[in-house]
Design a protein around this nucleic acid. Structure first.
Lengths: 564, 564
DNA sequence: TGGTTCGCACCTAGGTGTTAACCT
DNA sequence: AGGTTAACACCTAGGTGCGAACCA
């Protein structure tokens, strides 16, 4: 019934223009080849440390394989054996250090001044992209980023109110062009004229430090656009330019000047963080096929374009599916397979027919209805934990709202017209790896496990620049970038203040079924009937069942960024 | 390919047990019959004053017809000619009076003490259900209410912080049983033992009075369950009991005791509102077929069950479809129609095949990609409106966050253990009609049109009990209920504090494309490229194009409830 | 020719009533 | 026999890359 059918192969029309290098990744090639085709099949569904976060159905399956999915770190000298254990479930020990100070001190009372830190979640995935050369599609209507920025914040005053915002600044003043022949980005001239400044203010803003630190702060809903007249509040960028996303944490009293249509103010109370691996080049259509592949492999919404296991191409998948019927099918062609062009084989429920007909409804129902529904519970006020410990299900309660004590700071200043602050100052950042990129819910469990030692804790209790990873012997530890030589951020105080609405409504719907603890979702870990509450670091109680269900500890990146 | 096919008719298995009265609505029957079949066809897509709020595609179409869609008010003595103009587009004058005080005073500076008022949105739809006998399905997993509670709040101090919450209390201590023979609910004994108390705290809580008053406060995400062990934060109810939803507005300093698992506290600073037309009976499966019909007709998610125009039942629709081929088909039976059991007729594009095959993918693409995307824009701080008036698109900006001045009130008290407050006191309420129930986005536009007279303003500026409707001659005006004789609300201080998460993440996704101004969505009117901003009543500027696009003024209900 | 746009198939995510079991 | 449950078809809503068309 469908009027148009996709071509069977997901290569773009430009495929003829690729270099072999671009297609196979050359020296950056992952070592996947070593494996049997059967093993690689599942990679296509989104594997390794980074979980899709949206298809609860395949989570369990993948966790069983991740130990060998991450064993390859293209190009970099990073040790492979570090990632493997981290990727796997049940090794939650790596989780703990993410909240070193807050968790240690049994917070609840205000903490003394400590360094605000921001860890990038999903750093591993970001780096995978970064090694290839991250591209982000921008459209007139606005396009989400993939991976999305997700960070974990620590070192805030639990009782102060903060805004968290994100902006994206030019890395240089160049325009780029992708040369298919060499599979490289080349400078193609100077940058286009600046675009109207836009800031994505996290929809949970303002919130208490406790709230921010309790969850993974996700920027899933942020959208990029090339429409300079955009009135949806999306971040406006030029195509074929290089950009650097930044995260800002602004104390409420300093947020007077904060606006979605003005550059983020600078000064005390505004801390800015950036992560080098999140640099990307904007495009209106993907240039590097490797990027396309990785996006398709990892973004659940692009599942339809998977060959059912990327590197293990479609044919191999079919071989597997039909092995029972035709044991020696190794050399078969598409024509050999009945219905290949129109539908999947009878036994291949997980085999997406690339040219499949619409006549095959999804009655296979891959989604397990009992998968975690990740709800969020609201409390009217911050509560004494004792009120909720009586729970017969060993559940904790999430104090969603800042609570009475959380906003004794009222910003009394008027939101006066913000004088254009001028160029942003550069930002430093240190970054450790071993992270989940897209926000594996299970992986981002912000819980400190009582009684379980935190092997990396020692490395994280120092200041931001001392971050390191105990279990990653050969890993470089952290990267320290000098002042980011980012292109001047000068926008006209400008006429197009045409601020406009931005849809934040369906916050978290994307990751609704998995990324617990993201501030986007205001969710809490909850698997099936189990109830697991985050308690803002004030307690260390939690349902130990969570461990068995939601391991995959490594997805939290030990990235610590230092602000200016 | 589908393994199971729905029966051709959407009548339940209990259909054999209905009385004719139940099927045709007896004296409550709407006068639709008078119309030609062609006119009534589209009713099935969700018409009258209440708009689906989720299918932007048919909005325009419907507005062209609504003038005659709402002309019937079953049973009540309500004048029909009142509703007609109100339902139609362009008559925005009815919108204005909804925000009498805030809009009048050019708020922005604090208002003197005034009566807090709450208007039920979608009162018309609620009353339609109420007249039949509203039923709400409850499931173990939790079921949304339809219609959802949506209210408009006024009379708050714009600069104070408030929580808005909802709970649902028993109307009496009886258990009910539906008697198909008489199509009536009969008492079947005493109520079951009380269920654990649950309160749905609106996810936007706490927020400033300005924020609450600016938007329609929607309880879309609230879910009902019959699972007493629920850990999702859903409201727990008994099946076959009668309940009354209530809305509470709690000033932040009084919200210490507010908890999702404890009864709403009483006392100063807590104002409770209830609307008689929102009483419902809980069921696990619909009892009254008229309820089923109305639900299917109005709930966009049930569109698949529409016969393409409910009251203009399936057969009539087919007659129309096949009229061209068989002009005298009035007496035909299902068997007369080729393919009746499996697919719709050739010419009825809007006729959903009741038993249709899955082999027909949605390539018709009903959704217009250019339809309003209803985005929400965040502002880091409340801003001086002057900053945004320069917009070349005559757009205004929504000040999303309370802003600096919005929380000078910090509740310093600890969230101490809340002593069980005991039975709720009854609540009074006055209610005017003429409302949209489900929250037609366009209809809930909280804008005061400068220069446009507000015919009903005079009736709404008084205290809560003086509400009336100027244009509804014969309507009773308002209802004043004495202290609601609601069943005692005594729950054990109880053991199952098993509070638990509640998913609030995808707030507004349901109404994402239409109900602007709902606090659930934090959205702003925005049609296509147009940008319309709500400004919290601080300004009256807005893009006049909104009028032409988003009329349908009547959907805002002039309901004013009085709290205890 | 390189870059952009737009319709589309194909996904995820989740809200409907129906239906057939199932329970009491 | 009435009430409850879970799977399911069928929706809404919207996020993907593809590919043809378009543009400069």
């Amino acid at each position: 019934m469908a009027e148009k059918r996709r071509a069977t192969c997901s290569l773009s029309v430009k495929a003829h223009a690729f270099s072999v290098e671009a297609l196979i990744g050359a020296h950056k090639r992952r070592k996947m080849e070593e494996r049997g085709e059967g093993q690689r099949e599942r990679e296509g569904e989104g594997v390794e440390e980074e979980r899709d976060a949206s298809s609860p159905d395949d989570s369990p399956r993948q966790r069983h394989e991740c130990s060998r999915e991450t064993d390859t770190e293209p190009e970099t000298a990073r040790a492979r054996d570090d990632d493997s254990p981290a990727d796997c479930d049940c090794d939650v020990s790596l989780e703990s250090p993410r909240r070193p100070l807050a968790a240690q001190k049994q917070a609840g009372t205000s903490l003394p001044v400590e360094e605000t830190r921001v860890e990038l979640q999903g750093s591993d995935l970001w780096k995978r992209f970064h090694e290839i050369g991250t591209e982000m599609i921008i459209t007139k209507a606005g396009r989400r980023m993939f991976p999305a920025m997700r960070v974990k914040v620590s070192g805030l005053d639990p009782h102060l109110q903060y805004y968290v915002a994100m902006d994206i600044i030019p890395v240089d003043n160049k325009r780029y062009r992708y040369v298919y022949h060499s599979s490289k980005w080349m400078v193609a001239g100077n940058a286009d004229s600046p675009v109207p400044p836009r800031v994505y203010i996290h929809p949970d803003s303002p919130a208490s430090g406790e709230t921010w630190m309790r969850q993974v702060v996700s920027f899933d809903k942020l959208k990029l656009t090339n429409n300079e007249l955009d009135d949806q509040g999306h971040i406006i960028l030029h195509s074929m330019h290089k950009y650097q996303p930044r995260v800002h944490i602004i104390c409420k009293e300093c947020a007077d000047e904060l606006s979605p249509v003005k550059p983020v103010p600078v000064g005390e109370g505004v801390k800015t963080f950036s992560f080098p691996e999140t640099v990307f080049t904007t495009v209106t259509a993907y240039q590097n096929q490797q990027i396309t592949r990785l996006k398709i492999d990892r973004n659940p919404f692009a599942k339809g374009f998977r060959d059912s296991g990327r590197n293990r191409m479609g044919l191999e998948a079919l071989v597997e599916s039909y092995a029972f019927w035709r044991p020696s099918l190794r050399t078969l062609t598409f024509e050999d397979i009945p219905g290949m062009a129109k539908q999947g084989g009878p036994g291949s429920h997980s085999l997406l027919s690339t040219g499949g007909s619409g006549a095959s409804p999804a009655h296979t129902h891959l989604l397990s209805p009992s998968a975690c529904s990740s709800p969020a519970f609201h409390l009217g006020a911050s509560m004494s934990a004792s009120e909720y410990t009586a729970c017969s299900r060993s559940a904790l309660t999430l104090s969603r709202y800042g609570g009475p004590l959380a906003d004794t700071y009222g910003c009394l200043g008027s939101p006066g017209a913000d004088p254009y602050p001028g160029p942003r100052s550069g930002s430093y950042s240190t970054a450790n790896s071993e992270a989940d990129g897209f926000g594996n819910p299970h992986a981002t469990l912000p819980l400190q496990i009582p009684g379980m030692p935190s092997p990396q804790l020692q490395y994280l209790t120092g200041n931001a620049f001392s971050a390191n990873q105990s279990q990653q012997g050969t890993y470089s530890g952290f990267r320290l970038h000098g002042p980011y030589g980012l292109y001047g951020y000068n926008f006209p105080t400008s006429p197009r203040l045409a601020t406009s609405p931005e849809k934040v409504s369906s916050q978290g719907s994307f990751l609704g079924s998995s990324p617990s603890g993201t501030t986007t979702d205001r969710q809490i870990m909850s698997h099936g009937e189990g109830l697991h509450m985050l308690n803002g670091g004030q307690q260390n109680l939690f349902d130990s069942r969570t461990l068995g269900i939601s391991g995959l500890a490594n997805s939290s990146s030990q990235v610590s960024a230092h602000m200016v």
